[in-house]
Every structure is written in structure tokens, then in C-alpha cells.
Amino acid sequence: MELSDFQKFLSESFLWVEGLAAIIALLNYKPLKNQYWRFFIYYLILIFLSEILGKWGGLYFSFSKAKYYNYLIIPFQFIFFYWLYAVKSFDNYRLFYWFSALYISSFLVSEIFFSEKKIYFSFNYTLGCLLLMFLVLKEYYNQVNSVDILNFSRNKMFYINLGVTLFYIGTLPFFAFYSLLKDYSTIWDIYFGYFLVSGIVMYLLFSISFIWGKQNY
């Protein structure tokens, strides 16, 4: 589907806002190098580099972008956030292992029952988002019931959780029904526009988490 000039602008902005988040995170590495937040810095850098590879790597070598994102980049994102929430926010390793196993097993189900070629694996993305939604809601519950609720603006997880809500949870209908929505260009354009805008906002919130979220963990 051909993109409009505005959608192309948002798509380019998405990439460079990811880069901005990685740079801001890297600039804050020194005070966080002995905390688990350093892994979030590594994550942002790796995601930006992976997006660059996805955008321009085809100029130098041939690879399937669909497989690159479906089997590598998207699973990496989900599993990282399962770890960030379950292990580092909730101190629950078992929850991390269970959610990761459920998500990974969805690829086997997808291969058996949804083997047709798709740009995005809707079943895997839907399950991944539903599991992440549970963690997001639990994080909101913990924040609301925390004694530090009045200092939420200094809590990194507040900004991260909000960004994840807007992007991953907000785009769930878009990817869950991606194949169907392609036949309805107007609705597809609206959802795709939201996908780009929410992605930009998410990475801006990630950047803000390093600037304003100074709480020590």
C-alpha cells in the first residue's frame, strides 16, 4: 500500500526519534552503569541499530524483512519487556519464564495453523500484546497503590509504562486484524497513522524517563 507524504514523514521521524532515545540513554549511562537500567540503554541502542539494518541493510545484502522482524526484532522486544516488568519491576522470575515460554510457543501454533505468508504474524503479535497488557495493568496497579504515587514523575517506569500502553496496547487491533484491514484503506490509514504517532510518542517518553525519571532502584 502506497504511503502518503505525511506517512512517509512520520515513518522517517519514527526512526530518528528512536535514535534520539538511544543517544539520550547513552548520555545517561554513567550514573546508571551499576543499575539494571543499563540494560534498557542497551535495548534502545540495539533497537535503533536493528531499525537501521532493516531500513538500509537490503542495499548491501539480500534478506527477508518480514522474517527479520517476525522472528528476531519483534520477539526480542516482547521478551525484553517481559523481563523488565516481571523480573525487574515485580521481582518475579517465574512470571517472566512463563510469559516468555507462552509467547515463544505461539510461533509453533502459528506455523501449524497459520502457515500462509503474512507481513506480520498477527497471532503471535496478539498473544504477545495480551501478555504485555497484563504486565502493564499490574504495573499501573502497583504505581497507584505505591506510597510514592505523589512522586510518579520521578519514576522511570511511569513513562515507560505509558509509552508501552500507547504503542503496543494501542496498536493491538491494527496488527491483530492487519490482513483484514488491508482491504479497507481508510481504516488502515487511520490505524497506521496511529501506529507511527504512538511509536514516536513512546520513544519520546523513553527519552523523558532518563531526563525526568531520576528515581533510584
Rank of each mutant, 00 (worst) to 15 (best):
K138N: 14
S89Q: 11
K138H: 08
V147C: 00
S115T: 11
K156W: 04
G57A: 04
S110K: 08
M157F: 11
K65G: 13
S64G: 07
L180D: 09
I79D: 04
Y125S: 08
L180P: 00
L132V: 12
I169T: 13
L130F: 06
F61E: 01
D183Q: 15
N145T: 14
L53R: 04
F167R: 09
F175I: 10
V109C: 00
L172F: 10
V147F: 05
I74W: 00
F61I: 03
L135P: 05
R154C: 01
V164K: 02
V109K: 02
L102T: 15
K55N: 12
S50Y: 03
N124L: 01
L162I: 15
I190K: 07
N145V: 09
L131V: 12
K117I: 11
S62F: 02
G54T: 05
S146N: 11
F123T: 04
F61H: 04
Y103L: 08
G58F: 06
G58D: 06
F152N: 05
F63D: 02
F96C: 07
V144H: 07
G170T: 10
E111G: 06
F177I: 08
I119F: 05
F99T: 12
S106C: 05
S64D: 11
L84K: 05
L53T: 15
F61V: 05
L49K: 04
A101H: 04
V164I: 15
C129K: 06
F113W: 06
F123S: 04
Y140Q: 03
S115V: 07
G54E: 03
D91E: 13
E116V: 12
K65N: 13
L166Q: 13
Y93N: 14
N161I: 08
E51Q: 12
F90G: 04
Y82F: 15
L150P: 01
E139S: 11
